[in-house]
């Protein structure tokens, strides 16, 4: 069975999980305050950022600092519990498919969910920006090329973070520890992006990318620049290490 079909199988297992309801709810809660407080975007002279850029960046800052990583942890819980609830994992392990492939297909689904969550946020951003434009009689809509470039950056930078969350979900059998460790790891992101060692903390990557973009868009607000070295090699190393350990540990508890 090829890898793409296996991703399809893994995707199919999450039917009727109500996860989309949670994703929609999260996105609505993310953008509603932005619309309600849209007049605040006109008072950003001190930072030197245009209202439309501020509208966009504040929403995505809120998303990347907590909501997006936390929802990704919820999805890892969904994936692991779907396998464990009625022992579906036992059936999978007794079928002719390599556990490494199975583990990677599940990770691919997680990465796919990350893309969906970001795309939903982009979609809701455009709806919110259109509503805010109507309320304030000011054009808040940014060109799609810019918005999708930022969305793509958030998604790509989140892959190492997703690898860490997947490692936690696979390796920590006790649900409260895997959930607790994951959620607790998000909280220090806000501190980590202000340190020189931000590149060693994958949970801070998407937030760092957006904060850095904020610095570029705001004339009077300086934030750290993205240095691809040592970021990219470190991120690649962390991702590879997390996925290798996840693949080695996947299904071990059921194969004792």
């Amino acid at each position: 069975m090829n890898f793409a079909s296996l991703i399809g199988v893994e995707w199919g297992k999450l039917r009727r999980s109500k996860i989309f309801l949670i994703l929609v709810l999260a996105t609505v809660i993310l953008w509603t305050p932005s619309v309600l407080n849209s007049e605040l975007n006109f008072g950003m002279q001190a930072e030197g950022i245009s209202p439309e850029n501020n509208f966009f960046i504040q929403g995505f800052l809120a998303m990347t600092w907590f909501l997006f990583p936390a929802v990704m942890i919820v999805i890892t819980v969904l994936q692991i519990q779907t396998e464990r609830t009625d022992h579906g994992i036992l059936k999978m392990l007794s079928l002719p498919v390599r556990t490494t492939k199975l583990c990677m297909a599940k990770f691919a689904v997680l990465v796919l969910f990350a893309a969906i969550q970001i795309l939903m946020s982009v979609g809701t951003y455009y709806i919110s920006a259109a509503v805010a434009s109507h309320i304030q009689s000011y054009d808040f809509l940014l060109p799609p090329l810019f918005v999708f470039r930022e969305a793509g950056m958030i998604w790509a930078s989140s892959i190492p973070m997703l690898a860490v969350f997947w490692l936690l979900a696979v390796c920590i059998q006790t649900p409260i520890f895997s959930i607790g460790t994951g959620l607790a790891s998000i909280v220090p992101s806000v501190l980590m992006i202000n340190t020189k060692a931000w590149f060693a903390y994958p949970m801070a990557y998407p937030f760092f990318v957006i904060t850095s973009e904020y610095g570029r868009l705001a004339a009077n607000f300086s934030t750290a620049e993205i240095d691809l070295i040592p970021w990219l090699p470190t991120a690649a190393l962390i991702t590879a290490a997390c996925l290798t350990v996840s693949c080695l540990r996947f299904g071990q508890a059921e194969r004792r």
Partner: peptide
């Protein structure tokens, strides 16, 4: 083996479809 292993959120047919595809 032991207790039946399946995905409770899927129908019987969908469960078998997963195995068929693999």
């Amino acid at each position: 083996i032991e207790a039946p292993a399946f995905y409770g959120n899927l129908t019987g047919e969908e469960n078998l479809e997963i195995i068929r595809r693999i």
